[in-house]
Every structure is written in C-alpha cells, then in structure tokens.
Amino acid sequence: MAARQATGTPAADHATFAGGWNAPWFRRFRRDKMAVAGVIVVLLLTLMAVFAPYLAPYDPAEQHIIYRLRGPSEQFRMGTDEFGRDVLSRIIYGSRASLIVGLASVFLAGVVGTVIGGLSGYIGGRFDLMVSSVVNVLMSFPSLLLGLMVVVVLGPGTTNVIIAVALSLLPNFIRLARGPVLALREREFIVACRAMGASTTRILFKHVLPNILGPISVMSTLWIATAIRTEASLSFLGLGVQPPWPSWGNMIKSGVDNILSNPWLAVYSGLAITVTVLAFNVIGDGLRDALDPKQKTL
C-alpha cells in the first residue's frame, strides 16, 4: 500500500489507455493468460445475465413445492431450494443482481467520486481540507460497514443496495481523483492554459480528466469485485435483494438455513460469487500490470 502510494505520482506519468489496439499496454494485457481468461468469464457472465430468460430452464420464482430441497437431478440440474425453485435458473438470474449492483454502484461512485475528488484537488483550500479529512476517516472503514450503515438509513432493496455500495466506494474514488489533479494543477501546461484564459470547466474536461481516467478505470475493475462481494454480504444478511427475486447472496442465506437438507444450494451460489469476483480481480491485476510494467508485482 505504502509502496503503491509512493509510486502514486501524477497519473500523467503512467501509461494511459491511449493508443488503440496496438498500444503496448494492450499487447502486454493480451499476453497475460489469466487476465484474458478473466475477460472471457466476465463476457460469459454478461451474456448469461442478458439472455437469462432464454438460458434458464425455469422461471426463477416458480415454486414446485413437492420437489423442495432436492439434490441435483435430471430435472433440476443444480437441485431445488426450500420452495422447490430451480437453483440453476436462480443462479442464472442471480447474475443480474450481482452484475447490475456491481457495475451500477461502481459507475455511480466513479462519476460522483471523480467529480468531488477532482474539484477538491482543483479548488484546494478549505474545501479540499474538509473533503480529504472526511475521506480519510471513511477510507479506514471497511466497505461492508459503510454499506450496512447506509442500508440502515435507506432500508433494504436492490436500488438502496446500489446506493449503499456506491457510497461505500465513494471515498476511494475521491482520493484516487484528488491526488493527480492536485499535482496537475501546478504543472506547466495547466498553468499555461489558465494563463491563456481557458475556462475552469474546459481545463478540467479537456486536460485533467483524460489524465486521470487510466488509473480510475483500473481501480474500477477491482472495485467491481469489492462491490459484488459487498452486495452478496448485504443480501446474505437479508438486507439486499428481496424475495422472491434471486441474488447469489440471499441464495447462500437460504442455503445456510437448509444446509443439512441440500448443501448444494449454498455451495453453488457461493461458487458463482467466487468465480465472478475472481474474474474481476484477475482483470484488475492484469490491467494494473499492463499499464504499469515497472510494478509487475501484485
């Protein structure tokens, strides 16, 4: 962490996403087999979520109570839950909850966090001091605790979980955007722009933003993994996606409740979370290595 912070010098020094398909970073990324595998898994998951109605053998909320809590069979490939709902179909549909919450919350946090962090770094002064001290406090909190706090205020449910996870990730993005902007502010070309009378908005969008997009994208991928895990945790505690709709987290919960009758329920849904988070983690690792070859360590 300290090491990373030390190299967290202005983003302009890093390789960025510029350069198209043949850019050196992309060639390095393509050579990373694990990362490529991660991309494939995420693509497959996305396809699964989009085409869930065509892939799932059953309606995920349809109950077949006489077949409740059965193990895997011809009829139900991954067995059934306590209401006789098809676990395979629920896992397929559950990918929607995970991906939607993961992507939406990271996107939300990314946009809002970049704006706040960027402004904070650019404006500086008392505003910056206030923002950064709050961020410092929040940063030391695990995202699950922050998420819990927000869900307490908003109540359970998918939309609220997205907001909760986004808010729990927000401090990360603020800090990520603030540092480079703070450094950029004093660089010659920005000073020159200002001297030439360019408006603040123009400077921010034209010169500052492209410079910080690189690291933000990399970290976003890693935080999607965190977001998906947080969603699963909140749903596991019964505070996330509400019945009858499936999320891998609430499926694990029902798996734990019925662990003796059908242990597969918890095992399969947990596996789904693990694979998804793993895929995002490898992509994130691969992107970081590719963009910053000096630090090919993690």
Binding site: A232, V256, I273, T274, N281
Partner: peptide
C-alpha cells in the same frame, strides 16, 4: 487470488 475473491462467510460455510 482465490482467497481474495471468496467472501469469508462462504469459506466459513465450506469449512462448516
């Protein structure tokens, strides 16, 4: 990497 991707409570369930 696997450990990093697995929610601790899921590992707990497997151990249990």
């Amino acid at each position: 990497l696997l450990g990093l991707s697995m929610p601790a409570f899921y590992l707990g369930i497997l151990l249990l």
